[in-house]
Design a protein around this nucleic acid. Structure first.
Length: 259
DNA sequence: CCCTGATTCGC
DNA sequence: GCGAATCAGG
């Protein structure tokens, strides 16, 4: 006794999103009705974007009519999951508590969650972690003494450039992507691997670091450049003036929705 | 504070 | 099955 069930006292109600398609005016038949159920297409888009690394918010915004929670819930129901989640590194650590400090029983009476989770605390899954993977050197460029003659090369874009040393590559060409736990699938048989790199072959990364088939271009370099002619055209681009930002990332999703 | 995803639980 | 409410880490 003595325990008075004080409901949510300071719990501010924060309806994440209560989008109501108020636009559904009477007489408006034809077009899809409110249900907005998870059609196959919507699910497909959800999957695609989810696996693509898009955030739940973006997916929800793209799909429209659904909250990000709905997206997350659906994704989990679909069996999707596993993405860098801010909260969920839970890994039972054996013997890390102090016997003297006591278990420090947490009241945790914040909410009647009825958890009742026995939590066996058994982790019979050692899961052997593969050794760390070598990283790509940003710019190994052995370029030793300045014995390199001043070569003026012409890029595909018709640009002129001095030899290395006068200028450094402006932007790193490696598109940052989701890192994966390194798969043991050396499918890079005839591919140019990290060890195959030298100043004669193109260092343009193909794929994403950490992936099984990650390798390098390996084509003959454009004289004076770390990349071949083709990739020079991608690595060295004129700086666009402010205001002319470049937001055109490939949109491989099913429905190119324009807003 | 914002963001994120995970989870719970009423519907 | 769905998703708001809530939790929790960055």
């Amino acid at each position: 006794m003595g325990l008075i069930g004080h409901g949510a006292a300071t719990r501010a109600k924060r309806p994440e999103k209560q989008e109501t398609w108020g636009g559904a005016s009477p007489g408006n038949d034809r077009i899809q009705t409110d249900p907005m159920s998870w059609t196959d297409e919507r699910i497909a888009t959800l999957k695609k974007m989810w696996e693509s690394g898009s955030t739940a918010s973006q997916i929800a915004d793209e799909l429209g009519g659904v909250s990000r929670n709905a997206v997350i819930g659906k994704a989990h129901r679909l069996g999707l999951k596993a993405r860098p989640s801010p909260v969920k590194p839970n890994e039972e650590k054996p013997e890390v508590k102090k016997p003297a400090a006591a278990p420090a029983p947490k009241p945790a009476a914040k909410r009647p969650q009825v958890a009742a989770t026995p939590a066996p605390a058994h982790t019979p899954e050692p899961e052997p972690r593969p050794a760390p993977r070598a990283e790509i050197p940003s710019q190994p460029v052995p370029n030793p003494t300045g014995d390199m003659p001043r070569i003026v090369s012409v890029g595909p874009g018709g640009f002129l450039r001095q030899g290395p040393g006068d200028q450094q590559p402006p932007i790193p060409p490696a598109p940052p992507r989701r890192l994966v736990p390194a798969k043991p699938s050396p499918e890079i048989a005839d591919k140019t691997s990290l060890l195959d790199l030298n100043d004669k072959v193109c260092r343009w990364p193909m794929g994403h670091p950490g992936e099984a088939d990650f390798h390098f271009c390996g084509e003959a370099v454009n004289p004076g450049f770390p990349y071949c002619v083709e990739h020079c055209g991608r690595a060295y681009q004129a700086q666009l003036p402010r205001g002319a930002r470049r937001p055109p990332p490939p949109l491989p999703f099913g429905g190119p929705r324009v807003r």
